[in-house]
């Protein structure tokens, strides 16, 4: 099954759900599939492990990257690159907006409301069942409501990013898929895709999934790896 997402895509989710890793891997994956991809770092919340840390390899892969100015690379200031509103008005084939975590992280989207209101917006919620507050359906639905309220946008898709770092097993991937199936049933929001580390892909029974699987290669590594 192929990932079909195109147009304007906002990636949201609770803090630490793996939004940025999902966004980066989706950007590389879609670029390789021949799609014109741009990615904008809207994370005004998280001080470390941000899209801006791998701007070089994104650029080399031909992904257009919209970031705050280089001199603010390591600032913990809520800077929104001014070109973001412009690119939303004229998006590439796939424009990924990597938002910050929780409802707080998507507040910035409301500020872009004018630009977003003229576009069809896809907004996906990334869920990692191993993170606090989203290990159950109620927790996922709560954060979904909070994100929708703050961003003034509707959630359109779900992504399971079941992740325990190098300890992730195929069963963990199935568990994440089962959780978003339930979230999908209760909310009526469709499952967009699930993610799995490239190492796990050969071990997975793909027949268990009724959605595409995005292979994940960790991009924001620890300094000792």
């Amino acid at each position: 099954m192929q990932i079909h997402i195109k147009g304007l895509l906002v990636i949201t989710g609770n803090y630490g759900s793996g939004k940025t890793e999902t966004a980066l891997n989706l950007a590389f994956n879609r670029k390789e599939a021949g799609i014109d991809v741009a990615i904008a770092d809207l994370d005004l919340v998280n001080p470390y492990f941000r899209t801006r840390e791998i701007r070089k390899s994104l650029g080399e892969a031909g992904v257009k990257v919209i970031l705050p100015e280089e001199k603010y690379m390591h600032a913990d200031l809520p800077i929104l690159a001014p070109e973001v509103a412009g690119i939303i008005r004229q998006p590439s084939e796939l424009l990924i907006l990597d938002a910050g975590g929780d409802d707080v992280g998507v507040t910035v989207l409301a500020a872009l409301g004018d630009a977003l209101s003229r576009q069809t917006v896809n907004m996906i919620q990334v869920i990692n069942p191993f993170r606090p507050f989203t290990d159950n359906v109620e927790g996922c639905l709560k954060i979904m409501r909070e994100i929708e309220q703050r961003s003034k946008l509707k959630m359109t898709g779900l992504v399971s990013n079941s992740n325990m770092m190098e300890h992730t097993s195929p069963d963990d991937i199935y568990r994440g898929y089962e959780l978003i199936c339930k979230v999908s049933q209760q909310s009526g929001i469709r499952i967009e895709f699930i993610t799995a580390d490239t190492r796990l892909i050969p071990m997975l029974d793909m027949n268990r999934f009724e959605c595409p699987v995005l292979p994940i290669k960790r991009r924001l590594a620890f300094p000792w790896n």
Binding site: G16, N128, F130, R131, P132, D135, N163, M164, M165, H167
Partner: peptide, 13 residues
């Protein structure tokens, strides 16, 4: 069971 946490969150818990 194991959970995935940031150091800061884990210190709080």
């Amino acid at each position: 069971a194991k959970v995935l946490m940031k150091g800061n969150e884990a210190i709080g818990e």
